[in-house]
Simulated assay, not measured.
Amino acid sequence: MAQKIYLSVFPLLFVLSCATNGTKPVVLSGHDRPYKVYGKWYSPIKHARSFREKGIASWYGREFHGKKTSSGETYNMYALTAAHRTLPMGTYVKVRNLRNKKVVVVRINDRGPFVPGRIIDLSYRAARMIGIVGPGTAAVEIEALGMLREARVTGKTKHSLMPGNYYVGEFAIQIGAFKSKENALKLREKLANTYEDAHIVVYNIGNDKFYRVRVAKCATLDQARQYKKILRANGYPDAIIVAR
């Protein structure tokens, strides 16, 4: 962890952090739950649309290497990850060192920092890439880039960043995932009689192959939420929204 503590913070370009000393904030359905640290409640935000922030970055390394992060992942000091108090887990963030102009892109998978004046805790590798390891802290600007989106293109899995506006894009509703192709085909056939664009997405995890059954092609997250609500009411309680 960085040794030097800064008590002042640069002006925020877009303030979304919600910390209070009193009543527990309302839980935002479908997103990270509020949590309490050192007597303060923090409410993770719904999305990172247009999120920018300036302040002090620090880093954490060997002392935490191999331990669990707030997301449940194991902390790897050599991975490009970071901790933020309120950004959604999985958000990719561009971090720019305001002194030397070096830039690194990291993925949020932990909560913190909780030292006054600091806005982000970088992994050792990320901090080294933008020259923070030596001094311990640095003034930075962070910008949310979006979430990772997975797609199947010509039989191969492709990854891209879903823009920070998570309310617009292409969404589908996943009903189930099967190891049995036959079971997936049966469900798709059943769904096709009632719902539009019933399809199967094949996903490989190691040596295992899964057949994900999905319906619909929604242009906005609000449309997808309505579709999911209908499906759950019609006997598909495990229906979830996914990015196409």
Results as ranks from 00 to 15, higher is better:
228 K>D: 00
218 C>W: 01
197 D>T: 12
19 A>R: 12
135 P>N: 14
129 M>W: 09
69 T>D: 04
63 E>T: 11
102 K>H: 09
121 D>G: 09
43 S>R: 12
43 S>E: 08
178 F>R: 01
1 M>F: 15
215 V>C: 05
45 I>F: 00
162 M>Q: 04
11 P>N: 06
96 R>M: 09
239 A>H: 05
234 N>W: 02
48 A>T: 04
35 Y>Q: 08
46 K>N: 01
179 K>G: 06
125 R>Y: 15
178 F>H: 02
153 V>H: 09
39 G>M: 07
81 T>Y: 15
198 A>Y: 01
212 R>S: 08
122 L>D: 07
141 E>G: 07
135 P>Y: 07
233 A>L: 13
134 G>I: 12
174 Q>K: 04
163 P>F: 08
116 P>Q: 15
42 Y>G: 01
226 Q>H: 05
167 Y>D: 08
179 K>E: 04
32 D>P: 00
106 V>L: 11
217 K>S: 13
81 T>R: 15
34 P>V: 09
140 V>T: 05
150 E>M: 12
67 K>P: 02
64 F>G: 07
39 G>D: 09
36 K>F: 08
97 N>W: 07
102 K>D: 11
38 Y>E: 07
105 V>D: 10
115 V>T: 15
235 G>M: 14
157 T>V: 15
213 V>H: 00
91 T>Q: 04
202 V>S: 10
62 R>M: 11
193 N>G: 10
9 V>H: 10
61 G>E: 10
140 V>A: 03
234 N>A: 13
19 A>M: 13
94 K>C: 10
174 Q>P: 01
37 V>F: 13
184 A>F: 03
189 E>I: 06
57 A>E: 06
235 G>E: 14
7 L>G: 07
97 N>V: 04
241 I>D: 06
24 K>E: 13
39 G>C: 06
232 R>W: 00
183 N>V: 00
171 F>Y: 10
209 K>I: 11
42 Y>H: 08
45 I>A: 00
169 G>D: 04
70 S>I: 12
220 T>Q: 07
87 L>G: 01
60 Y>A: 01
133 V>M: 01
199 H>G: 11
79 A>S: 14
61 G>Y: 12
14 F>S: 10
72 G>F: 10
45 I>Q: 00
22 G>E: 03
120 I>N: 05
174 Q>D: 02
143 E>G: 00
78 Y>H: 14
75 Y>T: 04
194 T>D: 08
21 N>S: 12
65 H>M: 09
241 I>V: 14
91 T>R: 01
188 R>E: 05
132 I>K: 03
185 L>R: 04
62 R>Q: 13
219 A>S: 13
236 Y>T: 05
205 I>F: 13
33 R>L: 12
88 P>I: 10
77 M>R: 13
153 V>F: 06
42 Y>S: 02
130 I>Y: 07
88 P>A: 11
112 G>Y: 15
24 K>A: 10
151 A>V: 14
67 K>F: 12
116 P>E: 15
158 K>I: 10
99 R>M: 03
35 Y>G: 02
81 T>E: 15
48 A>Q: 03
144 A>T: 07
28 L>I: 08
